[in-house]
């Protein structure tokens, strides 16, 4: 495992990491500080970095007078369901495209990509009647279906690529052991591509977490608002609730951060190298 890392000078490593962290977190730090400010501090000149008076009003309003926690719950449900459903569809598809022979495979693969060519905003009008006739409107399940359809093509590609990296001898060995194909995927191949599955899951979760257009179109009642739609309601025509927007942004980042910290371990998996070495 260790030999796979390119050793870097520690100083350079930390310099780069620090730079990256400042860039990545800068807006969030500003968001966090802003969420504690009172309105007279918001736009003081010269720029006031720290609040003169630390206030929790933004969070009190956010939780007390907006349904933000429900937005978060909705987003989590949609993200979790979409992830499970997409993986159930994309793992078999990725496997078959990696291992079986298809005539015109490049065509199938490019069709998958071409599903992403169109600006989604122009698909809404045609999608709406389908969603309505199948009863998938105004509930979160409809969102899960649409999201799954949109994330599956890339997930298939990704997982196919990870299957491609597994030497064919592993398949052969499993078959000699008497595994059928499904058992082989489940017990032998999947564990090897755990990092790939985790990366795909991260992509799916984040897509579902950030998606706005379908959410506002197909699930736009206060009951089914997700986080992005909820955040956008804080930007009114005549009122701009910076406190709710920043407070909401910070709050919404917490579950995502926890999610990342849980999965990052799995993203780096010693399985492959360790096992193949035996």
């Amino acid at each position: 495992m260790a030999n796979k890392r390119v050793p870097l000078n520690r100083v350079v490593l930390w310099l780069l990491l620090t730079g990256w962290l400042i860039f990545a977190l800068g807006p969030y730090i500003w968001m966090l500080l802003t969420s504690f400010k009172t309105s007279s501090d918001l736009f003081a000149m010269p720029v006031r970095y720290l609040p003169t008076k630390w206030s929790l009003d933004a969070y009190r309003d956010l939780i007390g007078s907006t349904p933000f926690l429900r937005f978060m719950k909705n987003s989590m449900i949609v993200a979790a369901c979409t992830t499970v459903l997409t993986l159930l569809l994309a793992v078999p598809a990725g496997f078959t495209l990696s291992r079986h022979h298809y005539r015109g495979k490049p065509v199938i693969l490019s069709l998958l990509i071409s599903s992403q060519f169109f600006p989604t905003i122009l698909l809404v009008l045609a999608l709406f009647p389908i969603m309505k006739s199948t009863g998938l409107i105004q509930n979160l399940f409809g969102l899960v279906i649409v999201y799954t359809a949109f994330v599956t093509p890339f997930t298939i590609w990704l997982i196919k690529g990870f299957f491609d990296n597994i030497p064919k001898e592993v398949d052969e060995a499993a078959k000699i052991d008497g595994c059928n194909e499904i058992r082989m995927i489940w017990h032998v191949l999947l564990p090897v591509i755990v990092p790939g599955i985790v990366a795909a899951a991260a992509y799916i979760v984040i897509y579902s977490w950030n998606e706005f257009l379908f959410a506002v179109t197909f699930a736009s009642s206060a009951e089914t608002h997700t986080v992005p739609v909820g955040l956008k309601t804080f930007i009114g025509d005549y009122v701009m609730r910076w406190d709710l927007l920043t407070g909401g942004g910070v709050t919404a980042a917490v579950p995502i951060l926890v999610f990342f910290m849980i999965i990052q371990r799995r993203l780096i998996s010693g399985l492959t190298s360790g096992a193949v070495k035996s």
Partner: peptide
């Protein structure tokens, strides 16, 4: 690792406003 990934999970409207 978790922290550096956070920008990815930022809804567009929030990223744009900030």
């Amino acid at each position: 690792r978790g922290l550096t990934l956070i920008p990815w999970a930022t809804p567009s409207v929030l990223a744009a406003m900030m």
